[in-house]
């Protein structure tokens, strides 16, 4: 069911990300506004649509020469644009965390998994090593890792992709965040593993009351997993729809994306191709 968010966790108004290049300013995100409560918000779009840049901008993870501008960028009452780096560090990785696409590049290859989890926890909380260790094992079990003791001692190259992604999620949850930004968390995984990782995220939203921003290019996945969906194109939001109503979306871009997907049982005729209208960006 589609509910309006009860309490607003994140308020984004007119967010812009631009890069100064020798050939002029490139605008990756051009005036994106949305609010997020304790819900699953999907952001879909093709490559270059600005969906990942939007996710990174919330955590101010845009390195120079990139610039972030917004009329408003508020998280639980804090103005993310005016916080200093120290204040930002108290939020980033603790209250807002982010899971990236490929666990192979996000985990430290020369540090065992348990140490990485403990480091992450102890940076944000003042606890003993023993307590951090207990918490790390507990969180590994929470993401349904069968044998937490073994995985705790393992190095990233010793685990599979699906396991690696669960470990990344565990690491992002160990500080008990209010908001998790997941940037294509399951794109590198097989479909059956993908479902299990999604089930873990699903539980966290429903049981812990966490907010989730789920960035993906997969319309079918977003339609079945999220509560609400933002469709992005060229750095702008084309349309906001309830996920369950995505099949009835009206914007020609969303319709075009849905139509060009091959379907099992959809016949073998030529697939409709997407015709982009420059008017969408005006």
């Amino acid at each position: 069911m589609y509910h309006m968010p009860t309490a607003t966790l994140l308020n984004v108004e007119n967010l812009r990300v631009s890069y100064d290049t020798p050939r002029g300013v490139v605008q990756a995100v051009r005036g994106v506004s949305f609010q997020l409560g304790r819900e699953r918000l999907g952001i879909v779009g093709e490559s270059g649509s600005g969906k990942s840049q939007t996710g990174r901008a919330i955590l101010r993870l845009i390195p120079p020469p990139g610039r972030i501008e917004a009329t408003r960028l508020e998280f639980a009452g804090a103005d993310l644009l005016r916080l200093d780096e120290r204040g930002m560090r108290a939020i980033r990785g603790k209250r807002i965390t982010m899971v990236m696409q490929d666990p192979r590049y996000s985990l430290n290859p020369v540090m065992n998994i348990g140490q990485q989890l403990m480091e992450c926890y102890r940076v944000h909380t003042r606890v003993s090593r023993a307590e951090a260790r207990r918490k790390a094992l507990e969180i590994l079990a929470a993401v349904r890792i069968r044998n937490p003791d073994r995985v705790f001692r393992a190095y990233p190259h010793e685990v599979s992709g699906g396991m690696g992604q669960r470990i990344m999620i565990a690491m992002m949850l160990i500080t008990d965040p209010d908001l998790l930004i997941a940037d294509e968390p399951t794109s590198a995984l097989d479909v059956t593993v993908q479902l299990q990782v999604l089930a873990i995220l699903d539980d966290l939203v429903t049981k812990r009351g966490m907010g989730l921003i789920f960035i993906s290019h997969d319309l079918n996945l977003v339609r079945s997993f999220c509560d609400r969906v933002l469709v992005m194109y060229g750095g702008r939001i084309m349309e906001e729809v309830a996920a369950a109503q995505l099949h009835a979306a009206r914007h020609p871009y969303t319709r075009g994306l849905l139509n060009c997907l091959p379907e099992i049982g959809g016949g073998r005729g030529p697939l409709p191709v997407l015709n982009r209208d420059p008017g969408w960006l005006e």
Binding site: L195, L198, A199, D202, L221, S224, F225, I264
Partner: peptide, 13 residues
């Protein structure tokens, strides 16, 4: 699994 997210299927897997 390729049809999208489904709680029951995920639990079974």
């Amino acid at each position: 699994a390729s049809l999208g997210y489904n709680r029951a299927v995920a639990a079974r897997l």
